[in-house]
Design a protein around this nucleic acid. Structure first.
Lengths: 117, 117
DNA sequence: GTTCTATATAACAATATAGTTATAGAATGT
DNA sequence: ACATTCTATAACTATATTGTTATATAGAAC
């Protein structure tokens, strides 16, 4: 998976309020699928699908405890997404000072169109 | 638009590589639709749709210059999304220290399931 | 072995996303 | 007036997302 694809998966995963609420719950610690499903007016398979998308994005990982598949939050994907956004926020809040230096960095990391200049 | 809906729109907008590339371009300064479309192997209407999603998320705004509708990047939505992610990253990177204090904050801002406890 | 619990998967429907081409509208230039 | 340029919208297709119910699978308990 390329860096761009990982950002696609991460931001897609974060774009749903149910999945953001699941992450909020997992900040408190590991939880099983049933435990995660309980607060929602939604079927268990629906929650399983949400977990699959979070897992695909690398935002969670899952263990094994008898029949349970406890989920825990994972830091790496979170870090990559935050890092990407932080660059933009910094430029914006810095009112475009020291822009040139930052642009070089963005060019190499931010996913640019397929053109080389 | 609720806070949760705004995060939905923002993360959805960020989940596409074309739109991220457009933001990367706009960091350099304002640009018209045609200018933004030029690097991509994609029709002008496709770019207009992408811009619409970025605008809906509040990530860009548009001016008027003769027939041109120059786009510029906007900081607020970027800031909200970064802020949301930062909370999680901090907890994660802090290895769950001072978790209790942070949880209170997350509870009130992070978009939780429709249950009240 | 049978049953209960936890989770995943299949099959389906509704809606959203991402692209296309064709066309309309608005401002500019001749 | 007429053509040109820039942008938006309509109509369409293909695919992805989000949910459902029904069912399969895996482990635990009896």
């Amino acid at each position: 998976m390329t860096e761009s694809e990982r950002l696609d998966a991460t931001f897609t995963a974060l774009a749903d309020p149910t999945r953001r609420a699941i992450l909020a719950r997992l900040i408190e610690g590991e939880a099983s699928v049933m435990e995660l499903a309980e607060p929602f007016a939604m079927s268990q398979p629906a929650i399983s699908k949400h977990l699959k998308m979070l897992e695909r994005a690398g935002l969670i990982s899952r263990g094994r405890d008898a029949q349970r598949r406890p989920c825990r939050i994972e830091g790496e994907a979170l870090k990559a997404a935050t890092g990407w956004l932080e660059q933009y926020r910094k430029v914006w809040e810095g009112n475009f000072r020291r822009l040139d230096a930052l642009l070089d960095d963005l060019q190499s990391t931010a996913g640019r169109p397929e053109r080389d200049n």
